[in-house]
Nucleic acid binder design. Structure first.
Lengths: 192, 192
DNA sequence: ATTTACAAACAGTTTGGTCTGTATGTTAAT
DNA sequence: ATTAACATACAGACCAAACTGTTTGTAAAT
């Protein structure tokens, strides 16, 4: 029942956006009474936050499985492919951007988002470290670290997600992302 | 009176976000009766859209002035500095991101945003062409064009804006952006 | 005299949160 | 073994607030 509520919430955030996701719509879609909802989640905010947390957790578990599987061979190519998938073959980042934008004008939500965001970014770093050599220190003469490049890439993808919300066609985005990966090539060479 | 409404609208979008910007609040802040508001802008959407248009136009005028002034000396460094300013020393992009995210779940708004977005991006391209040599064709062996690099940069900045909404501190963002500029350097070398 | 600019009340809907009620346990006492 | 006390999970009505859009009214201007 909790699960049904969380699922319905995520669906609605995707379809109608953060602010158009009301508790009433959620209950209707989940086939749950409003009473049951308030029992499990006394406020709207707690429900939305819980749903986002749930999604992040699911994704995290999914990642862990995938990592445990491939164990050895995990190149930088793989890492970029992974980032792309997580961004555009999944609604994770769309929901996350919705949450971040909503958090800008909601102090309570902002603290939650801040914390989860840091966790997510360091998770990315850890994944990347599996595809690089042991010490992810300075990479090139510019003073860039692998962490920096990952952070830039994440920002880029977020910007692309915002764009994708309006311009559905994505062939060009794909090309641009590969271009970016190639631009990073020189800085990352010697690592993979 | 129209102007007062538009100003109040933009202020509220900044402070409280797109969806929390109601016509009532706008009227209250602008010191305008609700009757006057409905006279000039019959629907909420028309008012919000008009305010965004107004902001884009103001910015455009501002750009034109600045360009007419500097006329000759306008390097790529200048261009990146300009982009940074337009992004973080101005609320333009914050509002624009709010609009884009809202447009994802509002078909009517989406068409407006799409059009304005294309105009804005080509405007950026034109500005950049003032700092590059005449033919902005393929730049390097990767097949990147100047337009591609600009588009990537705009996406990056959008992602950073989303981030900035939650993490106010921006020293690190500044550093990352300069790193980005330097990464693009090799591809742009020979142009400025 | 007719259009324009503004004012203000109103209607209808939607919202989030509260409140009361009910059914199903579960524990503890006798 | 039965009863009393309490907790949990759900249902649904209710409410005050906020919202958008409409409508009616008024004053000024051309």
């Amino acid at each position: 029942m909790r699960a049904r509520l969380l699922d319905a919430t995520l669906e609605l955030i995707i379809e109608q956006g953060w602010s158009n996701t009301s508790t009433q719509k959620i209950c209707q879609r989940a086939g749950v009474s409003r009473g049951a909802q308030t029992h499990h989640f006394p406020t709207r905010e707690s429900l939305l936050i819980a749903s986002v947390r749930e999604m992040v957790n699911r994704h995290q578990r999914h990642i862990d499985e995938q990592l445990d599987q491939s164990e050895v061979k995990f190149t930088l190519e793989d890492f970029f492919a992974f980032l792309w998938d997580a961004t555009f073959n999944d609604d994770l980042l769309t929901i996350w951007v919705e949450a971040m934008v909503a958090a800008r004008s909601d102090a309570g939500l902002a603290t939650v988002v801040r914390d989860t965001d840091k966790i997510a970014i360091t998770a990315m770093r850890n994944i990347a470290s599996r595809s690089t050599s042991k010490t992810p220190a300075v990479v090139d003469e510019l003073g860039a670290t692998v962490a920096d490049l990952i952070e830039l890439t994440i920002y880029l993808l977020r910007g692309m997600v915002v764009q994708a919300g309006v311009h559905k066609a994505g062939a060009d985005r794909r090309r641009l992302f590969e271009l970016w990966r190639n631009l990073l090539g020189p800085s990352l060479r010697g690592f993979s």
